[in-house]
Nucleic acid binder design. Structure first.
Lengths: 144, 144
DNA sequence: AGAAGATGGTAAGAGAATCTGACATGTTTG
DNA sequence: CAAACATGTCAGATTCTCTTACCATCTTCT
């Protein structure tokens, strides 16, 4: 079949492959209580912690849904909430101990998958891919 | 912030942007009864029709979930089900009239968004992006 | 041909994820 | 200060997805 897939779908396939691999290998490493939705929120927490609204915007879901998922992550020990020193209304969602270990484990999986992709594409094209995507981000990331 | 996003997230951002744009502009054009989940299944129907199981595999969800969404698409007039002449067990999900018009409308939106991307990236890098993604598909598409 | 297994699809019920609307509280701005 | 805005929560409904179980048909093997 002559390939004429739209670029959106073409982007989706490797994205989904990466997500699946990370979740699978994380589960095998003992982090088997994470759901895809929880992970999608979790992965966006900034080093010093993030506000709920920011996480919601980045994940593209409502604050309510985000709160629902953060509650679960908190109960599972992946994150904690602390008051935001700069804003009395806000709280910061920070990565807790179990979360920290999860981040390390997932970083390893991501590196492995990226290495596989690079082995298939070649170093040069893998770099091109990342460059182009980073550039595209400027007009497709509603967040930053 | 130094940009070190993992490639999965970098892929996700433009994918999501494309999906959002298509759904928004489709809604504005009168196709306001489509949900994202329905659209994700619908967009994978092959020209001559597809089997439910194939759609399920491609979308990465169960046959039951797919059936649930196809039921809705059928009720909304986007698809119809006909017996598969080659297999008495199977039925083909085919695009119906309203679906056909939706396909045309969405094709136009996709073309517009791709043009915007190309204007930002330049023709050369847009082509490179598509080439690389098509290549990456060989090891990340569980379907074909 | 007949049995065993694989494949296509549906049914029922439960759980997860998401949304809308309303609200309390704190912050920023005119 | 008052008005507008932002942060987060609560309550309730809806949508989406999964698991388990099942039936019908097709394919393969003996």
């Amino acid at each position: 079949m002559p390939e004429d897939l739209n670029t959106g779908l073409l982007l989706f396939l490797p994205y989904r492959a990466m997500e699946t691999r990370v979740l699978e290998e994380l589960a095998a490493a003992g982090f088997d209580d994470l759901t895809p939705s929880q992970a999608r929120v979790f992965q966006r927490i900034a080093p010093g912690g993030s506000r709920l609204s920011d996480l919601a915007r980045q994940a593209g879901i409502t604050k309510q849904s985000t709160g629902f998922l953060v509650d679960q992550l908190e109960r599972l020990g992946y994150v904690r909430r602390v008051p935001d020193p700069d804003d009395g209304r806000a709280r910061l969602v920070q990565i807790a101990d179990r979360g920290r270990r999860g981040v390390e484990a997932s970083r390893a999986v991501v590196a492995r998958v990226e290495a596989e992709w690079e082995a298939h594409l070649g170093k040069r094209r893998m770099t091109q891919l990342r460059d182009i995507l980073a550039d595209l981000r400027e007009i497709t990331d509603p967040w930053r």
